[in-house]
Each structure stands twice: as structure tokens, then as C-alpha cells.
Amino acid sequence: MLHSARLRYLDAIVRRGSIRAAASELNVASSAVNRQLLALEERIGAPLFERLPRGIKLTAVGEIVIEHVRATLKDEARVMARIGALRGSQRGAVTIAVTPGLADGPMPEIISQFIGARPSTKVGLSAMRTDQIASAVVNGEVDLGLGYYMLPNPALLSLMTLPTEFGVVVAPSHPLAGRKQVRFSHLLEHKLVLTEPGSSLRQTIDRALLQRGISLRPDVETNSIETLKRLVAGGDWATLLNPFDASIECRSGRLVFKRLEGGKLSGQLLCLVARAGASANPLVNLFVEELRTALPLSASFMDAG
């Protein structure tokens, strides 16, 4: 390892919330972790944690130090991945944060294909809101972020943008599944479930409805894409989704994606980002290329009508 065990110990303490839990994860004695922490605090000249009756909490100095520690450990992982790639082994790890819909949609298959071609590779996948994704990338917690409508940020490097369109998603047995063309007005005749107000997708849908002077009142609103899809799969419900959030179900035939009449309706802009200035990592670059190829293919099921 390129860096002191103290950095790893500190990272484990923060992640696990206590010295004892960190020691258990690291498979060392609690006293050893505590000694390393005290030595680090002595070197810095300030306490890193507040010792509270129910645990520990980072001090302001501790917040600064842990940000540096995590960036340092991520840089070490990138260096090791580059060395592994030079040796031809492609060993190492790639970490990515994505929206819950993508985590439950195309990402498992994409990751499986990537690892299948590189058995020594590990991929870490985290599901987060888009604002959390951006922060995780900037803070060095993950290598890549994939989400919708990433706000411009000089600390982020854009690697890919992919326009999407939303459409009607129903079960194969639903009356709308057999229609050659589907209009917004058709949704007024059926039970409707939508993502909750304020979500990225819902804002996109509401803008499209406002432009057309149409008002839809969903019977159910939820912040869970999985709950939404399970309702729709029951046969009686309709919803509006982008193709990535329903890719697995539509490709398997459990759900049907219908484009809305009037041509493509602009949906969310899918953005892939990395931390600006991050060290080059051949393994991450390979995963980026995998995403650039696989994501468009995952939406190739869309009904052409």
C-alpha cells in the first residue's frame, strides 16, 4: 500500500461511526485503531472527533482531514489500477453513483458484461439522488456519476450526455398497449401513477403538459420507481417514464413502452461525469466506453409507433 494505515483507519472510523466498528471491519484491535487516531491528532495538532456519550462526531478540522484522506485513497486506487492495466491484468475497481431508476434498470446488466470480460475487476455501484451524485464525484467518493440534469460545475468533467424521451408505460394486457398511437388525453381514461412532484422526471412531464394545456391528476404518486412499475405490471395502471427506468421490464416483455403521438417528447438529459482533474485511470476509461456503447442499446426496445 502506498499510504499510511492511519488514513485507512480514519476513513473506517468515519464510515462505521465508531472505533470499535472500524476495528472490526479492519480486523485489528480497537486499541490499535485508537493509537493511530491519537497519533494522527497529535501530528495535526487538533482533535479530529468530538467524543460524545453516544458516539463520535467529526470536528471542523476532522471534516477537512477526511476530505483529504478520501481523495488520497481514491488516488491510490487509481494508481494501482493504472499499474494493473500496464501489466495487462486489468485488476482494480471502478466506482459509480447513479439514480435509483438506473440502478434497478440497465446498470446491473452493463456491470455484468463489463466484469464478465474482466474477471479481476470490481465495480462499486451506489444509488443516489442527482444532487448527491454530483457531491460524491466532487468529493472523490466515486469515480463516476450518472444522473439527469447535472448542473454546470467546474469541479465536474462531462464525459457523455444522452438525450432521452419519455413515453407511456403499461402492461401488455392494458388497453393502451394495443393502440398504434397514444395521446396524453388517453391517459385521462385510465388509472394513472406518476413519480412524486419535484422529481426530475415529474418536472419534465409537467412542463410538457403545461405546454399542451393538459392537466393530469394521478391517482397515485410515489418516490419509488420500483413501486410504480409493480403497480403498472398489475395490468390496470399507466405511467410516464423514460426508457432507461423501464428498460429491463420492457425488453423482457413484462411492460410496454409507447411513444406519445406528436413525435419525440424531450425527456431528461442523462449525464455521465467524473471529477475534473482526477488522475487518468485506464480501467475507468474502459468502463466509460462500455457505458457509451451499452446505454443507447438498453433503450433500443422503444416502440416505434
Rank of each mutant, 00 (worst) to 15 (best):
T72L: 09
L272K: 01
R35N: 08
Q181W: 15
S126D: 00
Q211P: 08
R202M: 00
F257H: 03
P53S: 09
M160C: 02
R82Q: 05
R78C: 00
D75I: 04
N223I: 09
R35H: 12
V220I: 11
P119S: 11
R212N: 14
V69M: 04
G305K: 06
V256G: 04
I225C: 03
R129L: 02
W237D: 03
D75C: 09
G213T: 13
E261K: 09
R183M: 11
L283D: 10
Y148N: 12
L201A: 02
F166P: 00
A304T: 15
P282I: 05
G124Q: 15
L58E: 14
G267T: 09
S300R: 11
R15K: 05
R82H: 08
G45C: 05
R16M: 07
T227D: 10
M80K: 03
G45W: 10
A85P: 06
I44G: 00
I66E: 04
A21M: 10
D75Y: 02
I214V: 13
E67T: 15
V28Y: 14
E196I: 02
V65W: 10
G124W: 08
G167N: 01
L201W: 14
T293N: 15
R35E: 01
L52A: 03
R70F: 05
L125S: 04
I64E: 06
A97P: 03
G116L: 10
R16N: 14
G62S: 14
N27S: 02
I44P: 02
G147Y: 13
L48I: 13
R207S: 08
V137N: 08
R251A: 08
D236T: 14
S18V: 01
M107T: 07
S4Y: 06
L38C: 02
R43V: 15
L176R: 10
L269E: 12
P243Y: 08
L272I: 10
V69Y: 06
S30T: 15
P296Y: 07
E289D: 15
R87V: 11
